[in-house]
Design a protein around this nucleic acid. Structure first.
Lengths: 353, 353
DNA sequence: CTGAAAGCGCTTACAG
DNA sequence: CTGAAAGCGCTTACAG
């Protein structure tokens, strides 16, 4: 094992520049003014020695590491990838680096993360929760600053969100306006844990509200939960609806990845898109626009979302006593080919595979 | 600012358990045997105080942080997302956490990362290089252990790779066997920097080799570089070929994301897939299988790839004196709908948009 | 199996 | 504007 001391330290720099370590520190952090010639001497010594400050030592001393955590359920999902990109960019702009965590692989992972977060050298955390918002809140006093992303129903943590309920209702209105009457909810169901889960619950509520205001019935047959919000998960959910033999003419998928899986499954059962079935997604990830049938979706500015999360997080890192804040990011429905109606309708009974 | 001392320390635990700090350390690290009753007393004290070790202090003391870096060009790309997932899982299994970096956003980012890597508290780094393999090699002595992923042409660094050259040649053979004769290379070109860049160069060489062994000419008109290996980048590259008025009957895209963009662009120019044009990608990301026209691609085990990278990295973290090692991961060509030939052929002249 | 001392490399008061 | 001292919270020799 290479000994830790193989790297030059501030002390080495100080000796070479003939100043005290404190002056080197001043040059590095800009805490105090340093006279030009002294500063140049110190900088040259740093260059000559190829000095790099030891962040463990700095972290130990001032209690901050410059690292934030970003925890998401499944890093493979397109929305996660887009959010990781946006958070890394936003963090970089603020002099922070990002440690990523994945919570959905094992049930215990999200709880572990929250209870053991402090062990991970992080100054703060952005968490896209699947299950555990309550237990986050319980542990809040023992945790580093946390910003939740998504529609978590509590008011003790900072959070960034889009109004998923209203967005889902808008999506239903759009599908109805394009001639749909029997809309599948792909991602949540009233029975099951549907309404209990943060983002999923809000989208389901919006779906139900959209049907209600059009005085259309909500049919359990047209609702299905999707455990993994991936393309494969969406395909599996769609298959379940099709195997039920349900009749429908539109699908509201709770993410774009789910929508892509649904479109694939529908095509393989012989459905024409959008002639038979309209499809709407959520998130506007890159492949929504480039899908075989370009996907209508709820779009919002992912970078603005990440910037808001980092603003909340860094302000709380400066002052943990701030009241909890919630910031809403605007969305818009982007109509693409996948909802060019009116749809003829489809059913798994039409064409067993 | 919350003072660093707000958390209980090993000293607090030691006092409560009536032992020395050293014993607490022994319980924590398992360095030395601790008698059962003592250990239980210490563990109870840790629980009562909600003690979590300070990793900055541990890192300062033993020179390791337990964090590895993962640097990729563009975190939004589907392959990056898949690799991030796989590396996080592999790291987790080894008790490590992952800090992510993005290098393509600004030209200086990759160099910065390499020259300043040590500042980032990381014990090692997995780097998917775009430009800078040479300068990585130059700096190697001053860097933490590095594993390169991708087809970098040098032999001083540990690396994991698939044989992209042979894979690209296999893809060309496959396209030719399915009836193609004029194959677009979407991602690299002989003129331009085509052959100089690691992965891109290997795939281009394989493409040229495949044509040569069939005694078919390589036409510069059918080659184009794609600066961003994303869906949008693929669409832009395909558009350039189409606007040249080139005639072709197949596309070898250098990643699946590029392929998806190409398929979208082809469709919007009126091409039928695969009736007019065959398309083959690279990487087998999830959306390749679920594309409107399921995509033939070069598939390999992403998790095995990540595991290999971590094995190389952790072994080098233990012993920096090891000779450089290269590990090849096997691939296979997965034939899907997008290469069901024979293709009729297409040209941008057919249908100006 | 357990303890007392020293030190990893920084930065923060405290002096000048 | 610069310096000498102390200490952040651990772990590593060194004793017993």
């Amino acid at each position: 094992m290479t000994p830790p001391s193989s790297r030059p330290t501030m002390r080495d720099v100080a000796e070479r520049a003939r100043v005290s370590p404190k002056t080197v520190s001043n040059v590095l952090t800009g805490t105090a003014q340093v006279r030009e010639p002294t500063r140049l001497r110190v900088e040259q010594a740093m260059r000559e020695l190829d000095f790099v400050p030891n962040l463990s030592a700095r972290g130990l001393r001032n209690g901050r590491s410059g690292v934030i955590g970003l925890a998401q359920p499944d890093l493979r999902a397109a929305f996660s990838a887009s959010m990781t990109h946006a958070v890394v960019e936003a963090a970089h702009a603020r002099g922070l680096v990002v440690q990523v965590e994945e919570t959905a692989a094992e049930p215990a992972r999200e709880r572990d993360l929250v209870t053991r977060a402090r062990t991970h050298l992080i100054d703060g955390m952005i968490l896209n929760p699947v299950r555990l918002q309550d237990s986050v809140v319980e542990h809040l006093d023992h945790l580093p600053p946390i910003v939740l992303i998504g529609e978590v129903e509590q008011h003790r943590t900072d959070r960034v969100f889009i109004n998923s309920r209203s967005a889902a209702r808008d999506a239903v209105r759009h599908l109805l306006a394009r001639g749909a009457r029997r809309i599948v909810a792909l991602g949540g169901a009233e029975h099951g844990a549907g309404l209990d889960k943060a983002t999923q619950g809000q989208r389901l509520r919006g779906y139900l509200a959209g049907l209600a205001e059009a005085e259309l019935p909500a049919s359990p047959e047209l609702q299905v939960e999707v455990p993994e919000w991936t393309i494969a998960g969406g395909a599996a959910g769609m298959r379940e609806i099709l195997e039920r033999g349900a009749e429908f003419d539109a699908v509201l998928a709770f993410t774009d990845s789910i929508a892509l899986g649904a479109m694939h499954e529908l095509r393989s059962w012989g459905a024409r898109l959008p002639e038979d079935v309209l499809v709407c997604g959520f998130d506007d990830v890159e492949h929504a626009r480039f899908a075989g049938t370009p996907l209508t979706t709820i779009a919002f500015d992912h970078q603005a979302y990440a910037n808001a999360a980092l603003d909340l997080l860094t302000s709380r890192m400066r002052d943990r006593g701030l009241p909890p804040r919630a910031q809403e990011i605007p969305y818009e429905l982007l109509a693409r080919t996948s909802t060019q109606g009116p749809p003829a309708g489809f059913s798994g009974k039409n064409s067993p595979i």
